[in-house]
């Protein structure tokens, strides 16, 4: 081995030839193993997620235990931010309201979405299903901001809905309870999340073996019994997925409450933004964000746990 080789400096080079070959051979086998190749393949996206998702999430958790004085961060451990987040009446109000709005939105979205998913899966002919799904998703590729803003146009005092209803003679005075409050936020969000509920439920319904329905009918079940005993339990995984997909992100919605919520419809994300912006209290903002996250995560886990318990019993 010539002295100019860079390998000379590594520990490997100092080993006897036979050992070196054995180690290199082992390494090659290791790398050539399918599982190792799998790791190599998944490494770039995983590293990206670690660096830009895991590390930031860890950082924001750390931040929630620190304090900020204008621009300097005091890194002494403190629970003061969480104390504020959980006891301050304003934060508590915003948190509970956010949970309530998310809950109502989740329920409303699913109740409205289920019949349409059912219709497309069971009533629309096979060759036109894709078209229906496409039709359902098109409106959601408009700018999210403008979609929310247009709800303001629809629900406003002199909005499309009020002028329309007055024109038709259904009401005499414009309705005031539909804009700049929690109702407006709920209506707008139920609209915004519709496809995210329809798609998983549709997929679950599509997977139902149609012969099961015939079997139920042959055994004397009426349409309602059949729906309750076969369709609904088998659609449950889709419904649960829809619930989680709608419930979790909704709690963090910023745009909708800001545009149509008025003073009484603001949610926790608006306060988080204030803390990261004007108030310049990042640790408190972090504590609010973590608290909101923890709450939705726990509620979601309970939901999953409940569905696991309910699922097999109904299916069995």
């Amino acid at each position: 081995m010539s002295t100019s080789e860079p390998a000379r400096n590594s520990g490997l080079a100092r080993l006897p030839e036979a050992d070196r070959l054995a180690i290199l051979g082992r390494l090659r086998d290791l790398v050539a193993r399918p599982s190792a190749r799998g790791y190599v393949m998944v490494a770039p996206p995983f590293a990206y997620a670690l660096l830009l998702l895991a590390a930031p999430l860890a950082m924001i958790v750390a931040f929630s235990f620190w304090t900020q004085d204008y621009l300097t961060i005091d890194r002494t451990f403190t629970l003061a931010n969480y104390r504020a987040a959980w006891t301050d009446p304003l934060y508590r109000l915003l948190m509970l309201r956010s949970l309530a709005i998310s809950g109502v939105v989740t329920l409303g979205t699913i109740l409205l979405a289920f019949p349409i998913a059912y219709y497309v899966s069971f009533r629309v002919p096979q060759e036109r299903k894709a078209l229906w799904i496409f039709l359902i998703t098109i409106p959601f590729w408009t700018s999210y901001l403008l979609r929310v803003f247009l709800w303001k146009v629809i629900l406003g005092y002199q909005g499309v809905l009020n002028t329309g209803l007055i024109e038709l003679g259904i009401i005499e005075e414009p309705l005031r309870f539909i804009l700049y409050n929690a109702n407006a936020v709920v209506i707008t969000l139920i609209h915004a999340w519709a496809p995210f509920a329809i798609l998983p439920i549709f997929v679950a319904l599509e997977r139902i073996d149609r012969s099961l329905l015939e079997a139920a009918e042959d055994l004397g079940d009426g349409p309602i019994e059949r729906f309750r005993r076969i369709t609904l339990p088998l659609a449950l995984p889709g419904v649960l997925a829809a619930a989680l997909i709608v419930f979790i992100p909704t709690i963090g919605d910023y745009v909708t409450p800001q545009l149509v919520g008025g003073k009484d419809g603001l949610m926790i994300a608006n306060m988080i933004q204030v803390q990261f912006g004007k108030a310049n209290n990042w640790p408190l903002g972090a504590a609010l964000a973590i608290s909101a996250m923890t709450m939705v995560a726990s509620i979601s886990l309970v939901l999953v746990w409940l569905s696991r318990r309910v699922g097999p019993r109904q299916a069995g």
Binding site: L52, L53, A55, P56, L57, M59, I60, F63, I248, P249, T250, I251, G252, D253, Y254, A269, I272, Q273, F276, W282, G285, A286, A289, A292, M293, V296
Partner: peptide, 12 residues
């Protein structure tokens, strides 16, 4: 929630 992604990225 996107706001969690946004704020945590901002912080880091």
């Amino acid at each position: 929630p996107e706001i969690i992604i946004a704020t945590s990225l901002l912080v880091v």
